[in-house]
Write a protein that binds this DNA or RNA. Sequence first.
DNA 1: CTAAGTCACCTTTTT
DNA 2: GGTGACTTAG
Length: 708
Amino acid sequence: MDIKSLNDRQKNAVLTIGGPMLVFAGAGSGKTRVLTYKIAYLIQEIGMLPENILAVTFTNKAAQEMKSRVHDLVDVDLSGITIGTFHSIGAMILRKEIGRLGWDSNFTIYDQTDSKSLVKNIIKDLNLDLKMYDPKSTLIKISIAKNSMQSFETLIKSSKNIHEEKIAQIYKEYEQNLKGNNCLDFDDLLVKPLDLFNQFPEVLNKYQNKFKYILVDEYQDTNKPQFEFIKLLSELHKDVFAVGDDDQSIYGWRGADISNILNFQNTYADSKIVKLEENYRSTQNILEAAWSVVSRNQNRADKKLWTKNDTGDKIRLIDAFNEKDEALRIIKDISEIKKNKDVSYDDILILYRTNAQSRAIEDAFIKNGILYNVVGGVKFYDRKEVKDLLAYLKLINNPKDTISFDRIVNFPARGIGKTSLDKIHKKIDSSDNLIECILDLKDLGVGKKQTKSINEFCNSINFYKKRFDNESISIVVKDLIDEMKIREFYKNQNTSESEERWLNIEECITGIVEYENSNENPQLSEYLEEVSLFTDLDSINEQHDKVTMMTIHASKGLEFDYVFIAGLEKGLFPIERIFEEENLEEERRLFYVAMTRAQKKVVLSYARSRRRFGGEPIPTTKSRFIQEIPENLIDNFMASNQDFISNNSFNDFEFDLKTGNIVYHKIFGKGKVERIDGSGSKAKITILFFNNTRKKLIYKYANLEIIE
DNA sequence: CTAAGTCACCTTTTT
DNA sequence: GGTGACTTAG
């Protein structure tokens, strides 16, 4: 390893050993290098064993990458090192220790959908009104309570009205049901290890001794349980190395507490602080523009990035008619960029505030034949068909899992409807082994057909459970899919949608095979855990010649030459929501994160009107962030800085349509533009459609899509 | 009980 | 414009 390639401050951060240290690492300041060099240095120069090192990263992929980068620096066996996300590390500890809290080690991890189903069942069981106690918002309340480490007991005591009391009661039932089902939710993966540490000092002591050096990435985004976790584990050796940037704290809504990083020195006595302020990534203009926005925040540590890089291009601004036009203008800019330089599509990143914005952009990309890759949105493992298959595996792995049982007991349909299922639930206790319990019962109180059907189902589950013990996962899963006739189920529907669903099942099998190939001792329970903690961010790969699109949250830590930030409109970015206090400072940080992903150029865009939920277009106003950037940093800043004059200004809109263009119309199909009369949105377009009909259409209403 | 059809709500952001 | 929950006819 070559320490010389580090700058002085980076060197200081890497070489200072002993005692707590916080590194303020601005965007693009080489923070990942510092972390990897530090680990390498600990192993090679200090002689620390890999198993005594704990490194916490933000995504599983970042963990893998860190491991391989450390491996590039020091050639030792790193299999003993613990690198992972808070959630995966929590899960790892719990698999070993949770017996003490009364769970089995093969516990299932519930995702949000599963948790929501459980909450809903509880609300129904308590005879509460689902409108007054909406499962989704109730789950959010429970999650907030768990993440602020409030038990249901304290919540019941402190409740001020019946509603709050009932919520606390749902919370209580929820916790008891999770335990009865031998399940944990995402929050438990953070909170339960703390329960263990607090109730069983010998467990805490074991891990304190194991983890002699603790490194935490993205420290600004830690929440209360995560903060406690690190604090408890580091109490013995006091060797915490936290890296973060308060300006990039963007997970406040998930309970992340920016004061964890701002108060680091109060938490950890005698801690040292290093600030990395030299940026190696972006141009001066990009940094200046990003800083001019984020520096308006009150609650931040004073600092400013600088760079030896060029001034670079100014920030470009796209003023679009609507979201479709925005997408087209982005494409136009991309082809401009591609024309002038030796640029590939995979140097380009498109960012937006909400996943829903991707649709309009995707549509335009498809029509123009540009390949792209969307990160996030509907996640693979959240798809219905994939969840159904996984529910089989979850139930086989943990026969107490009521939610998975309910999900598949009648999928594909085997004659056990709601009435029968309700009756069965009355006969068995939810904390029992459901399968054994049903097989033991002589009389389930349901019809003959139903009894036969459910017994067959339970026998199958048991049969496959045994097979999983000594056969390869993928082979057994394929047989399971055959026997349950899942393929037939989708093939029989014979729609493009069902076809796609089946393809997703196949992709899932491929994923299982991949898991088997990359693990020495593949286990069903381990596979399920991996899948539960997998996120779309983990699948970001260098795409060959594809444009990448994602939310700004997902882009943290990435860098691209050209970055487009779409939808800079009031209410959308910074986002506003009724009933929720404004969090302008966090939105500014989000904007800062977005800008600082770019190495060469940033293009901002907004649309003067935008459809939401596929409804009517709604006029918009420019985002305040555009005004917060000094005019001289923006390429084509409009002379008048006021908001759009009125909706009538749409009449002045210029479109790209020319005679000879091939266009697509929803009803008439494809056609060729023969003639254009007038200009702007009221222009009359004469089109000869491919079915040989000629139509004269008003541009504004025709909704034409230009194909070529 | 099943399957197809209608309705309501939705959108911040993610482990 | 898409999903999941509820309704209604076989």
